[in-house]
């Protein structure tokens, strides 16, 4: 059965958009709660241990993670610039910054994959390893979904799904990507700095 887009007026669109935005923000808040649960679990384990990480467990590489963090934070800036380019109707600049964001996101995932393959600890080897792989793995999964989200939105803009006044998918993708960036600030601090 063929489906057809329903044409609605600007006032109705704004109302629907505000509901979608609120729903999406609730989704981000619920995702924050999931990460917070794991983070508090990690902090509890850490506070219960006299030595952290446990004896014989090696901390992951600090400077590689610092560079990888900047790659992800940089992608947050390029995503913001892509959104601004869209608002100013500069399509070529928008596409350029979107591609840059996708490349930086893939770069971050590659850095994480490199880190995983060079760590001596495992998911099941220690409490530290379990927490590290669970939290960074969950975050990496979010980045992976985010990259797919961005590619989808980029393809949708090419197909003319959005225009200058109706682009909620793009707004959602931007908010999601910023969320993924900000979660990494907390994880980087927890596992590499604190």
């Amino acid at each position: 059965m063929a489906t057809h887009a329903i044409s609605i007026g600007d006032a109705e669109y704004q109302e629907v958009r505000s509901h979608r935005l609120l729903g999406f923000l609730f989704f981000l808040i619920s995702d924050t709660i999931i990460f917070s649960s794991f983070i508090f679990s990690y902090l509890y384990d850490r506070s219960a241990s006299a030595v952290w990480p446990p004896l014989g467990i090696e901390r992951p590489g600090l400077y590689l993670a610092a560079v990888n963090s900047i790659v992800l934070f940089g992608s947050g800036v390029t995503m913001h610039l892509a959104m601004e380019a869209w608002r100013h109707a500069n399509r070529s600049r928008f596409a350029g910054f979107m591609i840059a964001t996708i490349v930086l996101g893939v770069g971050f995932l590659s850095g994480q994959a490199y880190e995983y393959t060079h760590l001596h600890d495992t998911w099941w080897g220690s409490v530290f390893g379990a927490s590290f792989f669970t939290l960074t793995g969950l975050h990496g999964f979010h980045v992976f979904i985010g990259v797919i989200f961005l590619i989808t939105v980029l393809l949708q803009t090419r197909r003319g799904v959005y225009d200058q006044s109706r682009y909620f998918g793009l707004t959602a993708a931007t908010l999601y990507w910023h969320f993924v960036d900000v979660i990494w600030v907390a994880l980087f601090f927890l596992f590499y700095v604190y």
């Binding site: 934070f73 900000v182 600030v185 980087f188």
Partner: peptide
């Protein structure tokens, strides 16, 4: 928060 992350790095 992104700026805070940059400060930490």
């Amino acid at each position: 928060l992104l700026t805070l992350g940059c400060a930490i790095v």
